[in-house]
Design a protein around this nucleic acid. Sequence first.
DNA 1: GGGCTAGTCGTACAGTGTACGACAAGAACG
DNA 2: CGTTCTTGTCGTACACTGTACGACTAGCCC
Lengths: 256, 256
Amino acid sequence: MTEITGTGDPARSLSLLWRLVEPSPRGRGAEAGLSVDRVVDAAIALADAEGLGALSMRRLATDLGVGAMTLYTYVPAKAELLDLMVDSALGEFPSLYAPAADDWRARLEAVARASWSTYERHPWLLNVAASGRPPLGPGVLTKYELGLQAVDGTGLDEVAMDAVFTLIEGFVAGTARGVVEQVAAQQATGITEAEWWEATAPVLDRVYDPERFPTVTRVGPVAGEAQQAAYDPRRAFEFGLARLLDGVAVLVDGAA
Amino acid sequence: MTEITGTGDPARSLSLLWRLVEPSPRGRGAEAGLSVDRVVDAAIALADAEGLGALSMRRLATDLGVGAMTLYTYVPAKAELLDLMVDSALGEFPSLYAPAADDWRARLEAVARASWSTYERHPWLLNVAASGRPPLGPGVLTKYELGLQAVDGTGLDEVAMDAVFTLIEGFVAGTARGVVEQVAAQQATGITEAEWWEATAPVLDRVYDPERFPTVTRVGPVAGEAQQAAYDPRRAFEFGLARLLDGVAVLVDGAA
DNA sequence: GGGCTAGTCGTACAGTGTACGACAAGAACG
DNA sequence: CGTTCTTGTCGTACACTGTACGACTAGCCC
């Protein structure tokens, strides 16, 4: 379930992201101590605990002890709430990022690992489609700043710096999505990866033609055995990150 | 909106994917000439034309001229229908793949471009979460076979061959998702990228602190100007593919 | 105390996937 | 030909979604 962010007025969204205007409640919401931050924090807690699928306006309102429509006092719509959640969750990035100062490669690797950790802590981030028009709040901009700093001083020009950060960031999101999908598959089916394969293998044997898929026949079992699954996202992350940094190194060395 | 595949019995799904059993309709469905293939083809046509969001069982049934529940005669549930759609759409991959025989790098690049074309033709593929437990039908296996063949003969061992293909494939999916999200954002908001930025920029100027984001201040405008947008997926694809292949080359040269 | 404003929230609407069970059309058999 | 059985069709119902609308009411100011 991918949700879409920022369907409303961009100016309104930005004001919210930077908390330019904060309503001062007087009614019953005041008793509950409601505010944009409380709503966003509760939404993040709910999505962390039970996934984005459990995050409905009614459910969130119940968690906060108010009626569903009360939320719309603090947030224009669910899309804007998601914007706020994304920016807030990405705001944790700096605390997870511990770069080595001198080496651009170590810095970039630290960016990737910190980003991975962010997605581990808030898997629902990967189900919020924001890449086209990201919520330009403090959290997003800070992460972008730190990512760009990591590739600064490599001799790459500005366009390349942006491209490298985008490449790394997209790679991390892609492999992290693998973890999310595996967990989601297990929860949706109630069947573990091993059980799934156990049920699949015998039927597959009946239809599978080794002559039609010679390379799969040779590679598939070996790879499956090595990662103890059809797909191991953690291994894919380590392997891919090394290849990616090698590739960036070729570019940096060429530019130097 | 990400949908999840394969929530039912794996053996049943596999039988369907390989069309092991085909029901021979006799009732009113026979008049409509219904079959699993007809249902899947109509579902793909609908998703191609109006997106995965428009694909509801009721709507699909209406398109086919039958009642909603009739579909469940041919397909156990929507999740299995999605499995079938994915495998069928990926079945187009071979016809889009024209490899140069000798050079592994050219072959791998052709794989990436063919995969990109597949996602271009069927963007909804990226909104179906299948990476953890892919539908192991003829389409998926054929794509996997051709992908592995591309890295065969490089001196890489089986585990590395699988990892390289997975890396490339994940990269393509990630950048292609960028295109999908931009289109989705435009359709959801009714606002073009340029209009969005025009509405965003003045408000951002009010809150933006250049001293807090020095590197963004230097890089952001240059990158934005170069790609005429906050994010240009096509450019990201070309840039990333080159880096990725460079990185794989380092591995291949080391193994040789 | 009266009036106003601003936050609260019940109701309603158009959707979703699919379980259940009533129905009917064709095949098989006497 | 009549009856029974099988199998595909599909109307209805349920619990759920985001949110527009408008009624209500609690607190502030005069």
